[in-house]
Design a protein around this nucleic acid. Structure first.
Length: 596
RNA sequence: GGUCCUGUAGCUCAACUGGAUAGAGCAACUGCCUUCUAAGCAGUAGGUUUCAGGUUCGAGUCCUGACAGGAUCACCA
């Protein structure tokens, strides 16, 4: 039993014995005591005054006395107004640590037998990935890791948007202006090559619109009548009719784009277990429309279009199939939801998609629940906010985006420059140095994007956003490297700490107990991060932990300690902190170096 | 216009889900490297939590109404 549990039990017994009141365990909550007061945990008694029929002070004192008498861990207490601060026997931190230290497999909760799919990334194959995709990918990958640590079996999925009018735009532009250019001949990554023609399409398209307007057409007419636009539409029709030439160009460009994406994913450090392609799934969902009509969940209008009425849920009527019998976006998504379930038997399905699609997913999930899908309650939209630039919103078509590949390279270059300035590469060969720069640059970038609550929109200022000091990835990486250095020294001078028995440790300093308190919180934080689908909770925890360690590090110089038992204890404390940092950062998808 | 999200120190973010005197980092200022890595540590300064009401022992957190920013409401995806 851990400390909190035994205090919880003690409080329950106290209520039974003193007030003759049955207080369910799950209603008892302990808060950490604020720094200004003596104690470790605080129990707030205000809510129970009706039960105790006494003043806050009297109530708190009665419970405090009972806990002091009957709960071994509680050494004393003090009462401030209605706050009961419990002072623990300092030595219990040694026991707490001993148990943590013995756990080989920290940060992994027992399997819960449930399968969850995390869909993220979901790129369009007409352009390269940008800053917004970085947030999406890092979030998705990290949440997948966190759910796995919470005991789920996780399937990471990528639903590639490889068809549609926007893809045809790149293709049309390539046909006209491509001159047989290839990634090899141009030296461009395949995804950047496709993106180049997407931008060209937009430029030429705008020119044509301007020409038509000069000839007297309205803006809307011009947009619909521009030759390039008509060509793109025609190409989509041909693609759907399986036209050989169009399909072959489509395949050719896709091959290039996927090769480019693969490199980007590799550098990001993300991976997928399953790829879905919209070119395969875009016709799915029509059978669900039929099913919905039969079940009376959907209804048909005079022109043959099919709708769902969600007014009882506070939404509107939504179209699920066009009058001509063709699909809309949501038709396909209904089909894909079923496909995922049929493929894997998942009980939960997480969609990592930007918050501009909040309404869409609200509708989709309500429909699937109305249809009585077994996975209906497990559908979750992990909605995240946009990444804004100081100059405003990013637009791929206009080329005002921060490109993912460029940004990652820039971060790694900055890390390299920074590291050299600090003179930290003595003893590194070229390959090791390059690896370190990669670790630090990517660590800084990932941490920057993950430390913020996903649902909040965030500002990215390329000039000054990413720091290497303070609440940053490199700060945590640095703390780890520091400990690694201590462990090397301990190894060198032969400190035995790995199998040590710390029961003879007879004093615990404040900076030690604070550190153990935090180390003890690790699994709770993983669980919280899983429930909230929020890597930010974990990021914040790891920063606090690294900071607490650095305080301990400055406070108690380990190798100056004369008592060998305490010295070993402190080395062990360091080793376990390093392990926790490493594991936690791994859940964020961030590597930690042994030296830096 | 309807719906949803956000609003906390100059800037970027926290606040254990309603608890005590709202905390970190950056930027500014002051100390600390002949002792384990100074990408660090200790400290100073910085706040009417957008505003106005309400609920209660207690509100940054819940409710109502303003204000500001954003998203969305297509037989687009």
């Amino acid at each position: 039993m851990n400390i909190q549990e035994s205090i919880h039990n003690g409080i329950q017994l106290a209520f039974q014995n003193i007030f003759n009141h049955d207080l369910p365990l799950e209603q008892i909550s302990l808060a950490p005591t604020r720094k200004e007061f003596e104690g470790t945990y605080t129990f707030v008694v205000f809510p129970y005054l009706k039960v105790s029929k006494a003043t806050p002070e009297v109530t708190a004192n009665l419970i405090g006395e009972y806990l002091k008498e009957n709960v071994a861990e509680v050494a004393g207490f003090n009462v401030v107004k209605g706050f009961l601060n419990l002072e623990l026997n300092n030595m219990i931190w040694v026991d707490v640590f001993q148990k943590l230290f013995a756990n080989e497999n920290i940060g992994q909760l027992p399997a819960n037998g449930q399968k969850v799919m995390v869909e993220y990334s979901s790129p369009n194959t007409n352009k390269p990935l940008h800053l917004g995709h970085l947030r999406n990918n890092f979030l998705g990958f990290s949440v997948a890791n966190i759910l796995e640590a919470n005991g789920y079996e996780v399937i990471k999925a990528n639903l590639v948007n490889d068809r549609g009018i926007h893809i045809c735009k790149s293709m049309v532009a390539y046909q006209h202006f491509g001159n047989e250019e290839t990634p090899e001949s141009s030296g461009l990554k395949g995804d950047h090559l496709a993106g180049k023609y997407y931008v060209i399409f937009d430029q030429k398209y705008k020119e044509q619109i301007a020409e038509l307007k000069e000839k007297g057409q309205s803006e809307d007419e011009a947009k619909k009548n521009a030759p390039l636009f008509l060509e793109a539409q025609e190409m989509l029709r041909k693609w759907e009719a399986n036209d050989e030439e169009v399909v072959s160009l489509w395949k050719q460009m896709n091959t290039w784009v996927y090769a480019g994406f693969e490199k980007t994913y590799q550098r990001m450090g993300v991976s997928f277990d399953k790829y879905y392609y919209e070119s395969d799934t875009y016709l799915l969902g029509k059978d669900i429309v039929t099913e919905g009509l039969e079940k009376g969940v959907f209804f048909k209008k005079e022109n043959g279009s099919v709708w769902v009425d969600l007014t009882d849920e506070g939404l509107d009527e939504k179209l699920v199939l066009r009058g001509d019998g063709t699909s809309v976006y949501i038709t396909q998504d209904m089909g894909t939801a079923d496909l995922k379930y049929d493929d894997f038997g998942i009980s939960k399905s997480v969609y990592v998609v930007g918050n501009e699609q909040d309404y869409h997913f609200d509708v989709l999930f309500k429909i699937m629940r109305k249809l009585g899908r077994p996975y209906g309650e497990g559908l979750y939209h992990l909605s995240y906010g946009m990444v804004d630039l100081p100059t405003g919103k990013m637009k791929s078509r206009e080329g005002t985006v921060v490109d993912a590949d460029d940004l990652m390279q820039e971060m790694v270059d900055t890390a390299a420059q920074h590291t050299k300035e600090l003179g930290k590469i003595d003893g590194f060969n070229e390959e090791q140095a390059a690896e370190l720069y990669e670790t630090l640059g990517m660590g800084a970038l990932k941490y920057f994007l993950l430390k913020v609550d996903p649902k909040k929109r965030m500002l990215f200022n390329p000039q000054e956003s990413i720091e290497f000091q303070g609440n940053t990835g490199p700060f945590i990486q640095y703390s780890h490297a520091r400990i690694a250095s201590i462990l090397r020294k301990a190894e060198q001078i032969g400190v035995e700490y790995k199998q040590a028995d710390f029961s003879k440790v007879n004093k615990v300093e404040e900076s030690e107990s604070s550190l153990i308190y935090l180390l003890n919180d690790f699994e709770k934080k993983i669980s919280q991060a899983g429930l909230d689908y929020s890597p930010a909770i974990l990021a914040q925890y790891l920063f606090d932990l690294a900071k607490e360690y650095n305080r301990f590090y400055a406070d108690l110089p380990i190798f100056l300690e004369n008592d060998p038992t305490i010295l070993a204890f402190r080395v062990a404390l360091s080793a376990h902190t390093a392990k926790t940092l490493r594991k936690g950062m791994q859940l964020l998808g961030i590597a930690v170096p042994e030296r830096m």
